[in-house]
Measured scan of single mutants.
Amino acid sequence: KMTIRVKGKELARRIAKEMKDRNLKVEIHEHGDEVILEIE
């Protein structure tokens, strides 16, 4: 399990899509400006 902190929703969406393309499970937690992606 891996956690990534990202500034900006646009970048977070791009990373999430990339991870889904690799068949990984992604959970997205938004905290205002910061987005936390949990990847399994």
Score class of each variant (00 low, 15 high):
residue 7 K to Y: 12
residue 18 E to G: 08
residue 3 T to H: 07
residue 4 I to S: 00
residue 36 I to G: 00
residue 40 E to G: 11
residue 5 R to L: 10
residue 40 E to D: 11
residue 2 M to Y: 13
residue 20 K to E: 12
residue 4 I to E: 01
residue 23 N to Y: 08
residue 9 K to H: 11
residue 12 A to K: 01
residue 34 E to N: 07
residue 20 K to P: 00
residue 4 I to W: 05
residue 23 N to V: 03
residue 24 L to H: 06
residue 7 K to C: 09
residue 28 I to Y: 07
residue 5 R to Y: 08
residue 8 G to K: 06
residue 19 M to G: 01
residue 33 D to V: 06
residue 3 T to Y: 15
residue 32 G to A: 07
residue 5 R to V: 13
residue 13 R to A: 14
residue 7 K to D: 05
residue 11 L to F: 06
residue 24 L to K: 04
residue 12 A to R: 00
residue 22 R to W: 07
residue 28 I to N: 01
residue 36 I to K: 03
residue 15 I to E: 00
residue 38 E to K: 10
residue 27 E to W: 14
residue 29 H to P: 01
residue 24 L to V: 07
residue 7 K to M: 09
residue 10 E to L: 08
residue 27 E to F: 13
residue 38 E to L: 14
residue 37 L to Y: 02
residue 28 I to W: 15
residue 20 K to Q: 13
residue 35 V to I: 15
residue 7 K to Q: 12
residue 36 I to H: 05
residue 26 V to W: 02
residue 13 R to P: 00
residue 27 E to N: 12
residue 18 E to Q: 13
residue 30 E to A: 09
residue 33 D to I: 05
residue 31 H to S: 11
residue 30 E to F: 14
residue 32 G to I: 04
residue 22 R to A: 08
residue 38 E to Q: 10
residue 31 H to F: 14
residue 4 I to D: 01
residue 4 I to F: 06
residue 16 A to K: 03
residue 34 E to F: 15
residue 9 K to P: 07
residue 16 A to D: 01
residue 1 K to S: 07
residue 12 A to Y: 01
residue 25 K to P: 03
residue 6 V to R: 01
residue 3 T to P: 02
residue 23 N to I: 03
residue 30 E to I: 14
residue 20 K to I: 13
residue 2 M to N: 04
residue 11 L to R: 09
residue 6 V to A: 02
residue 22 R to Y: 05
residue 23 N to R: 08
residue 33 D to H: 07
residue 16 A to N: 01
residue 14 R to H: 09
residue 1 K to Y: 08
residue 7 K to R: 13
residue 38 E to N: 07
residue 37 L to I: 13
residue 27 E to C: 15
residue 31 H to M: 13
residue 9 K to F: 09
residue 14 R to L: 11
residue 19 M to H: 03
residue 29 H to V: 11
residue 8 G to V: 06
residue 27 E to H: 13
residue 38 E to A: 07
residue 40 E to T: 15
residue 18 E to M: 14
residue 17 K to S: 07
residue 16 A to I: 13
residue 4 I to C: 11
residue 26 V to Q: 00
residue 31 H to G: 05
residue 7 K to I: 11
residue 14 R to P: 01
residue 22 R to I: 05
residue 25 K to M: 10
residue 30 E to C: 11
residue 16 A to T: 04
residue 14 R to M: 11
residue 39 I to Y: 05
residue 26 V to M: 03
residue 32 G to S: 04
residue 10 E to D: 12
residue 7 K to N: 09
residue 8 G to Q: 07
residue 40 E to R: 11
residue 38 E to S: 11
residue 35 V to H: 05
residue 26 V to H: 02
residue 6 V to K: 02
residue 26 V to S: 01
residue 26 V to C: 02
residue 15 I to R: 02
residue 10 E to G: 06
residue 34 E to I: 14
residue 34 E to L: 13
residue 28 I to A: 04
residue 2 M to E: 04
residue 10 E to Q: 08
residue 7 K to E: 06
residue 7 K to L: 12
residue 25 K to T: 10
residue 6 V to E: 01
residue 37 L to S: 01
residue 30 E to W: 13
residue 5 R to C: 14
residue 14 R to T: 06
residue 25 K to N: 10
residue 25 K to E: 06
residue 38 E to R: 10
residue 5 R to I: 12
residue 35 V to N: 03
residue 11 L to G: 02
residue 27 E to L: 13
residue 36 I to N: 02
residue 26 V to I: 07
residue 24 L to I: 12
residue 6 V to M: 06
residue 9 K to W: 15
residue 21 D to W: 06
residue 37 L to M: 05
residue 19 M to Y: 12
residue 13 R to L: 15
residue 8 G to L: 09
residue 8 G to R: 06
residue 34 E to G: 04
residue 4 I to M: 07
residue 11 L to E: 11
residue 7 K to H: 13
residue 37 L to H: 00
residue 40 E to C: 08
residue 11 L to K: 07
residue 1 K to Q: 06
residue 24 L to Q: 04
residue 36 I to W: 15
residue 25 K to R: 12
residue 9 K to M: 15
residue 12 A to F: 02
residue 16 A to R: 03
residue 6 V to H: 02
residue 36 I to P: 01
residue 13 R to I: 14
residue 29 H to L: 11
residue 35 V to K: 01
residue 37 L to A: 00
residue 15 I to F: 04
residue 30 E to G: 06
residue 6 V to I: 12
residue 39 I to F: 08
residue 6 V to T: 03
residue 33 D to Q: 06
residue 13 R to K: 13
residue 8 G to W: 08
residue 31 H to E: 14
residue 38 E to C: 13
residue 12 A to T: 01
residue 13 R to G: 08
residue 8 G to N: 15
residue 8 G to S: 15
residue 31 H to N: 12
residue 36 I to L: 08
residue 23 N to G: 15
residue 26 V to R: 00
residue 28 I to H: 03
residue 38 E to V: 15
residue 3 T to W: 14
residue 39 I to M: 04
residue 8 G to M: 05
residue 16 A to S: 04
residue 34 E to Q: 09
residue 36 I to F: 10
residue 23 N to E: 05
residue 40 E to H: 12
residue 15 I to Y: 03
residue 6 V to G: 01
residue 14 R to W: 09
residue 19 M to P: 00
residue 35 V to P: 01
residue 26 V to G: 02
residue 22 R to Q: 09
residue 5 R to Q: 05
residue 21 D to K: 14
residue 34 E to V: 14
residue 33 D to L: 06
residue 9 K to N: 07
residue 10 E to A: 10
residue 31 H to V: 13
residue 31 H to D: 14
residue 40 E to I: 13
residue 24 L to F: 15
residue 12 A to E: 00
residue 38 E to W: 12
residue 18 E to D: 08
residue 17 K to V: 05
residue 33 D to S: 07
residue 4 I to V: 06
residue 22 R to F: 06
residue 32 G to R: 05
residue 30 E to R: 06
residue 31 H to A: 11
residue 18 E to Y: 15
residue 22 R to C: 14
residue 25 K to D: 04
residue 40 E to A: 11
residue 23 N to W: 06
residue 15 I to M: 08
residue 37 L to V: 06
residue 32 G to V: 05
residue 39 I to R: 00
residue 40 E to P: 03
residue 19 M to L: 14
residue 20 K to W: 09
residue 24 L to W: 14
residue 7 K to F: 12
residue 12 A to I: 02
residue 21 D to G: 10
residue 36 I to V: 10
